[in-house]
Simulated scan of single mutants.
Amino acid sequence: MQPLPLKLAPGSDLRLSLEELAQRGGISGFVLGVVGNLTKASFQCPGQAEPTVLEGDLEVITLNGTFSPEGVHLHLSLSDGACQVWGGHLEPGTIVQKGVDLLIGVLEQREGRPARQTAAAAPRIEIAVLPGCPWCSRALRILRTLDLPHTVTTVNDDAAFHAVQQRSGMTTFPQVFLDGSAIGGYDNLAAMQAAGELDALR
């Protein structure tokens, strides 16, 4: 196990940043420690149909769980301005305020694993999202619920926005790609789910 410090800048999405790190680096591991604050937190409480969303000056208390190129499973606890503690399953839309410092433990890659194996197993679905976008969160929830492998690109600046726009010809988010071609946004993904067309992508 190799410890790796990670600093997230203001405006970063806590969950999507870890997903992107795991996918781009092809790494797996778990969260060892965290300190920082948030302007917005989105987390799923047991038995609730939709995530709970809090906004304000929020202090991170704990973040526990695992990450890999296939996805993340993270539990967040935090304190609001009244020192009331909240917590649940970390969802997209959890936005860093001044900064979040993480220490993650990266598991060593298995010996003898061919380097090209990761590329060959690259997910067919790609999704570009904006931090704090509710439609992006819903699209990601569809993919996670169906356990569909996918890569996530978080658009944090103008350069990333223009790069994705040139690929898709779209200006709205999320933007979903299948085998490298744009298939639309949340409505298109939801329609494919309703028609059962996503099941074949598992």
Rank of each mutant, 00 (worst) to 15 (best):
P3C: 00
L4G: 00
L4I: 01
P5D: 05
P5F: 02
L8N: 08
A9Y: 14
D13F: 11
R15G: 03
R15S: 07
R15I: 01
L18E: 06
L21G: 02
L21S: 01
A22L: 02
A22H: 05
R24M: 04
G25H: 09
G26H: 09
I27D: 00
I27P: 01
I27S: 00
I27L: 08
G29H: 02
L32F: 00
G33N: 04
N37W: 02
L38K: 04
K40L: 06
Q44Y: 01
Q44N: 07
E50G: 05
E50D: 15
P51I: 06
V53G: 03
V53I: 13
E55K: 12
E55I: 09
I61Y: 00
T62W: 04
L63W: 01
L63K: 00
L63I: 02
N64H: 10
T66P: 08
S68E: 10
S68W: 03
E70V: 06
G71C: 03
L74F: 05
H75M: 11
L78V: 10
S79G: 06
S79N: 04
G81F: 05
C83A: 15
V85K: 06
W86R: 04
G88N: 01
H89M: 08
L90D: 07
L90A: 04
E91S: 09
P92A: 15
G93A: 05
G93W: 06
I95F: 03
G99N: 04
I104D: 00
G105T: 00
V106G: 05
V106F: 01
L107M: 10
E108W: 07
E108T: 11
Q109S: 13
Q109I: 11
R110D: 15
R110C: 12
R113V: 14
R113M: 12
P114V: 09
Q117L: 14
Q117S: 12
T118R: 15
T118M: 07
A121V: 02
A121Q: 14
A122P: 02
P123R: 07
P123E: 07
I125P: 09
I127S: 06
V129K: 01
L130P: 08
L130R: 15
P131N: 03
C133L: 05
C133P: 07
C136A: 13
S137T: 15
A139P: 04
D147V: 14
D147C: 13
L148F: 02
P149Q: 12
P149T: 12
P149V: 11
T151M: 08
T153M: 07
A159W: 14
A159I: 09
H162K: 11
A163K: 11
Q165W: 07
Q165T: 13
Q166G: 07
R167L: 10
S168Q: 03
S168Y: 06
G169N: 08
T171F: 09
T172I: 06
T172N: 09
T172W: 05
P174A: 11
Q175G: 05
V176D: 00
L178H: 15
D179T: 10
D179H: 14
S181K: 15
S181N: 13
S181D: 13
S181F: 10
I183K: 06
G184Q: 08
G185K: 08
G185F: 14
Y186M: 02
Y186A: 03
D187T: 10
N188D: 14
A190Q: 12
A194H: 14
A195S: 15
E197H: 15
L198R: 12
L198Q: 11
R202P: 00
